[in-house]
Design a binder for these strands. Sequence first.
DNA 1: GTCTATAGAATGATAGAC
DNA 2: GTCTATCATTCTATAGAC
Lengths: 230, 230
Amino acid sequence: MSGNETIQKSTISSTEPDIQSNSLKAGIRQKKELQILEAAEKVFSEFGYHGATTQMIADGAGVPKANLHYYFPTKLVLYRRIIDQIFSIWLDAAQSFDENSDPVQALSSYIDKKMQISRSHPHGSRIWANEIMQGAPIIQDYLETTLREWTNSRIAIIQGWIDRGLIDPVDPRHLLYMIWSVTQHYADFAHQIDTLNGGKPLSTSQWGNACENVKKIILAGIGAKGVDIK
Amino acid sequence: MSGNETIQKSTISSTEPDIQSNSLKAGIRQKKELQILEAAEKVFSEFGYHGATTQMIADGAGVPKANLHYYFPTKLVLYRRIIDQIFSIWLDAAQSFDENSDPVQALSSYIDKKMQISRSHPHGSRIWANEIMQGAPIIQDYLETTLREWTNSRIAIIQGWIDRGLIDPVDPRHLLYMIWSVTQHYADFAHQIDTLNGGKPLSTSQWGNACENVKKIILAGIGAKGVDIK
DNA sequence: GTCTATAGAATGATAGAC
DNA sequence: GTCTATCATTCTATAGAC
């Protein structure tokens, strides 16, 4: 299942000679594709892959259903494009977690970024969650390669902190899972959180408060030295 | 939405005079219903409401599809029954969090129970997560009534601990969210966790380790006095 | 490049024989 | 109480006019 689906990054053929008309068409295509991708992200996150219909996505993007199939041949190809997009955002954020920082800096920054993503890309987070809960039928290969490697490298870094006495001896893996789960909870369970907030989305200051609480509890929880996050 | 759906606990009419045959039929019905409910829980958790087909559920339960419709008139009624079941389990576990215990006792016990549920009822946890991510189309009333009341009462208890100096001043609401998210993560993202565990489910000792880490970090994170969880 | 109309397949639910 | 056969609906995807 991992290798038999080619990602078509550009269907604009390089064999087409008319550059002028080509770039114009490319502009239209790019704009429409973006509209469709944005609509699809919302619909997939709200109804899941099976619950989403191409009709809903087409309506959300403001194009006829047949037009959608012109840009994305199948529903599955569209879904894969969105998953790829999300995974890319996750990985970019994860880069901040680098070996040169001390634990407080590294973890504070990582938690901040993950909370920001939960606020700016809640749909993506939910699609990811949905995909995992269904056994990752589409992205299993990502889990087994990229995610596993990233996870192991971060575990090594955390273990290094423990060995140098910078944080308490906790299981690095479960510390990572805690950070993932708590930060993504604010995206995945946003509806529940909003309902318990009187039916309103969290305000900017409420988001800030959530973020501070998460950082405080986790950093204090692992005995990180020199805690100064305010 | 809260009161217009009667739960049919027993469709065996009390006007039926033949007691012997009646209880026999009730036994068959109960057994079949249980088979169907168990199969449905698995299928709904794996594919979501829309992705699940009555055919899959019927196959999983070992009954013909038409037979399934004999016991549960519609797919939606079957789904509601399962959601009710899950919500009931959550609430029961939540009772352990009572006012008389000290923070360490209360929170340790609560986290233990939530972790146990994640291991014993992962399907239920995922169905709940799925339902919330889709905007709680079926259980919105539960969120606005029972869950809100329970949450507010626990927030008051935690605030009491803070006022008495038993734990650090954290936002009780976000502490609850942290406990929910971390514990449920081990059910909702079990596939990801298993993949990162070499493709194998966590062993009993690995579950114990996860539970201890969660308790340690959270209790230390809120400065709970007298931490003694091992 | 856009859109109407529709083909083809899958699904929820039911009828009716046993 | 069980099960085969089938209806009615819905959905993905495509054909073909503009």
